[in-house]
Every structure is written in C-alpha cells, then in structure tokens.
C-alpha cells in the first residue's frame, strides 16, 4: 500500500467517525429527552398532560394545554406577520427589482438572521411592549407583541428560501408567459408563484419551526402567564419558555414534567419538519 492510499483510507475513516458522532449526538439527545420525559407522562396519564388546564408543578398538576395553545397562537400570529411581508419581499427582489438592488438587499436581509434573539427580545421590551400598552391597553406583554417580534425573526428564513425557489423557476416560463402578452404581475401570479409553490411552502414551514422553537425573545415579551389567552393582548406562555423559565429551579417531578414539555415540543417540530421535507420532495418530483 502506498503512502497516498494509506492517507486516503485514514481520511475516509476519520470522516466516517465524525459523521457518525454527529448523528449519534442527535440520537443520544432524543433518547435522553424521551427517557426523562415519558415516564411522568404515563404516570399521570397522557390526557392530563395534553388536556390539563392547570400548571402547578409543586402540587403535581402538570396541564400543558395552555402552553400548547400558547405556542400555536404565537406561531400562527408570527406567520400572519411574517409570511405576507416575507413573500412580498421575495417576489419584489426576484421579479421586480434590479440586479444591483438585489445584490445589496439580499445580504442585508440575511444579516437579520444573525442578530441574536435576545436583541430582538430587548427591542420588543423597550419599544414594542410599551407601545402596545399605551395604544391598545392591557399589560403590553402579549400574544401580539410576541407574534410581531417572531414575525420579524422568521423573515430571513422565509425570504431567502422563497428567493431561491423563485429563482429556480426556469427562465423559459417567464419568457413564454410574457410572449403570450401577460404583464409582469400576471406572470408572477399565474406562472412563477404556482411553479415555486413547494419551495415557498417549505420556507413557511421552516419559518414556523423557527417561531415555535424560539425561546429567549418570547420569554422577554410574552408575559409567560399560564392562562389560555382570551385576546391577543393577553400574556401567554409557550412550551419553550415554560422549559427555559423553570428549568433552573426545577427538581424531581417538576423537572421530569419539563422534559415532558420537551417531548411534546420535539414531536410537534418533527411533524413540521416531515411536512416540510415531504412538500419540497414532492415539488422536485413534479419538475
């Protein structure tokens, strides 16, 4: 065996080991969360976890329904804010703006993704929360505040993936449509968007995953009350903030119940990711 061959083999083995370790870390985390979280779910019954309204861990009541509803509300709220803006921005940048403007704006939008979430939370606390309190009433720390901040936080995800999928639409589609006499907007609406649909849906689902998993900013601006909010001005607690808020102090069954919260979150995010993968694969197959 020559030296080169030996080196080749060594590198191959090293890369294999590294690849395995990355996957096994994921496996270990999954096993750990489930082994810590599921026993208590079965001890008190899955129903009491998923449908219970009271979260008083020191009194053995572990109802997660308010948090599940909270997570869902905040996530959909953020999509209501993020999707129209994100999609409009992506359409503008790919179809209507000049190449130069796109080269300036796209990196700036991607920079948004690099801002730490605590900074978003801080801006929310300092500017948005007092604004909501003074103009709309309520405590300010609310579903609305969290939705707006999260909506801004998911913009880079939605915009950059949507741009990629819009740009992937073959040039011949545009040319064909324009040649038939369609305007630019008609082309975008009737040809480009349907063709890029699967990528756009994937971008929305990935944004949703980001929103549902966000913690720090939400803790700072959502108010974290364990009530099911009656309006968008009420405070709300999400699954992630429930874990982060109480982890430091929890022990015994309280700690296990937080892992159970993690299990539920894990399952929700898994489902979202599976849907995202399925839609993007289907999109590719269609082409």
């Amino acid at each position: 065996m020559t030296r080169l061959e030996r080196n080749e083999r060594l590198i191959k083995i090293a890369l294999f080991v590294i690849a395995c370790s990355a996957v096994s870390i994921l496996a270990v985390i999954t096993i750990f969360i489930f082994s810590e979280g599921t026993p208590i779910m079965f001890k008190y019954g899955l129903r009491s976890f998923l449908l219970g309204l009271d979260w008083y861990p020191s009194e053995q009541s572990f109802g997660l329904l308010p948090m599940i509803i909270g997570s869902v509300m905040v996530t959909f709220g953020s999509l209501l804010v993020g999707v129209p803006f994100g999609l409009a921005c992506a359409i503008f940048l790919t179809e209507f703006s000049s190449r130069r403007l796109r080269h300036i704006l796209k990196p700036i939008i991607e920079l948004l993704a690099g801002i730490p979430s605590v900074v978003y939370g801080f801006i929310g606390v300092v500017i948005l929360v007092p604004f909501i309190r003074e103009t709309l009433g309520g405590p300010g720390l609310s579903v609305l505040a969290a939705s707006i901040i999260l909506g801004i936080m998911i913009l880079p995800t939605i915009i950059s993936i949507s741009i990629d999928s819009l740009q992937a639409v073959p040039r011949s589609y545009r040319e064909g449509s324009i040649a038939l006499g369609a305007t630019k907007w008609q082309t975008t609406k009737m040809v480009i968007l349907p063709a890029a649909k699967s990528g756009i849906i994937a971008s929305i689902i990935l944004g949703m995953g980001r929103a549902i998993g966000e913690t720090m900013a939400v803790i700072m601006i959502a108010g974290n009350a364990i009530n099911i909010p009656r309006s968008v001005l009420d405070p709300v607690r999400t699954l992630t903030s429930n874990i982060a808020l109480e982890m430091g102090y929890a022990s015994g069954e309280h700690r296990q119940a937080l892992f159970a919260t993690g299990v539920i979150l894990f399952i929700i995010i898994m489902i979202l990711n599976t849907i995202a993968n399925a839609t993007s694969v289907k999109g590719k197959a269609a082409k």
């Binding site: 720390l141 108010g223 974290n224 364990i226 009530n227």
Partner: peptide, 10 residues
C-alpha cells in the same frame, strides 16, 4: 394559588 393570569418573570 397565584392567579393563572398573572405575568410570570424569572
């Protein structure tokens, strides 16, 4: 119990 509608901070 403290009311569930109370804002919680850490």
């Amino acid at each position: 119990r403290v009311a569930k509608s109370a804002i919680v901070q850490d």
